[in-house]
Design a protein around this nucleic acid. Structure first.
Lengths: 259, 259
DNA sequence: ACAAAAGTTCCAAATAATGGAACATGATAT
DNA sequence: ATATCATGTTCCATTATTTGGAACTTTTGT
């Protein structure tokens, strides 16, 4: 799923191991990692030791497994708080959640995928990293398509050239052309829809967030399930959604000038 | 605040830079980091370049500043979800928040400090003090003292030998002896109190979480402010607090055997 | 008790990191 | 406009770190 050797020397190799552990998604044994890693035994062993010493991995001596360490949680909190988008969007998301009674997502692109930065449910008031930090493919989510449709060709290629258009449901567009065919309409209408393209029964309507200079920096979406809402129901929220995205963009412009 | 050279070669040095950026807490310029870092200009420059390529840092070309990158958010989400404590504690925290009407914190020790792993509030009225991933000193917080009082001498030394007992409020115990004087009572009573020792106006009652083998693995607390509750009010919740901590510990025991 | 697998250590060779110094860029003053 | 200073970037011979095959130890399975 991730690209080839990212290069960047020893540090890059070490960080790739973190991704590997994250992707497996459960505590892993040394031998499990050894199969997947390009490194010989001794090299991998030393990396794991270093990362564990550093708190980036946690070693469970009883079960002899490695999992991701708490230092990441600490750092990510700062990353989130320093982000120019998430903290200031918070209040707007909450307002929209209350107004619609549905779940609101805030997402950005990261490395060709959609990264959920925040999530707000009207019925449920906890915040945690469990909700932020999830990733999803861009080609089959509302927020993903809302962002992709407004990228310059260069940024689009950089994001998607190494991605595969996996088919998750019968509605997923699993080719680049199939996805791009929607872009004109998304740009014209101002919102993108997810019509059960990522998960059966889950639909969403998403609006891109722009800086004042017109660059897409993220997207927000109203997410629901077919059992509760129809796509038409969500369409009714379009004005509020677009307005909220506009407000967030305006506030973010004072802060954010992405390279 | 953090210790001396952590060693661990090139990877360790690179990760130290992330901590440095996190500690500063705002986007930083190259020259700001140069002052604080032990590295010469060219070396630091290369580290920042590598970390930026890797997505651990984000470079803002317009303002020429570095901040922590989104890759950390992605990884931390997995770290949280893989953690043996946080996901399973979730429901218990929520129940306690509803029952008490106050904010509930879940915390673990990390590197001599208290790391807040999850947080649950019953109402939206107040902006929360600590979000997941936030850190605080151990010696002056309820959760910190609840954990410290039940550490073995070896684990206590490992955790606290490099910590300074900073004084935050007039109530803070700013010596090791002052903090340890409370430990007998904490162990006898089963809970620790924060009597405005970290922040004026903020109080809490905290209970340690044990595995079935009797090892402390974290703590939960009920947090309030002096304007809403007295310490006696919180004490009234002691039975529920201890019971909840017990449940979490029992469930965690099936999973967690820390090294 | 034995064999096989998994995990750990060692060290000479290979490689990547280092940092002083030169070079570029941009801001501010003259 | 030109000089001056501060900041950021590149170069490359030297140096220090990483590398990984192989030997060794421990654990697991039969």
């Amino acid at each position: 799923m991730n690209k080839q050797a990212s290069g960047d020397g020893t540090v890059g190799k070490a960080l790739d191991i973190l991704d590997m552990v994250a992707e497996i998604g459960r505590p892993v044994r040394f031998s499990d990692l050894l199969e997947q890693s390009p490194h010989p035994k001794a090299t991998l062993y030393r990396f794991l030791q270093t990362l564990t010493n550093q708190g980036m991995l946690k070693y469970d001596g009883e079960r002899q497994t490695y999992s991701l360490g708490l230092r990441l949680v600490r750092l990510a909190h700062q990353a989130w708080a320093q982000s120019s988008l998430a903290p200031l969007a918070r209040l707007h998301l909450e307002a929209l959640a209350v107004e619609t009674g549905e779940t609101i997502h805030l997402a950005q692109m990261e490395n060709g995928q959609v990264l959920f930065i925040d999530k707000c449910r009207s019925s449920n008031r906890f915040d945690t990293l469990a909700q932020a930090g999830r990733i999803a493919p861009a080609h089959c989510t509302g927020v993903g398509k809302a962002i992709l449709a407004h990228l310059t060709p260069e940024r689009f290629d950089r994001a998607m050239s190494h991605q595969t258009y996996l088919k998750f449901t019968s509605a997923t567009h699993d080719t680049a052309d199939g996805v791009m065919a929607e872009f004109d309409q998304i740009r014209a209408e101002g919102v993108a829809y997810d019509r059960e393209e990522h998960e059966d029964g889950i639909i969403s309507i998403a609006a891109p967030i722009f800086t004042q200079s017109g660059r897409v920096i993220g997207a927000i979406s109203i997410v629901s399930s077919t059992s509760r809402r129809s796509l038409e129901d969500l369409t009714a929220f379009k004005p509020q959604l677009i307005e909220t995205a506009g407000k967030i963009g305006a506030e973010a412009s004072a802060w954010q000038f992405p390279s």
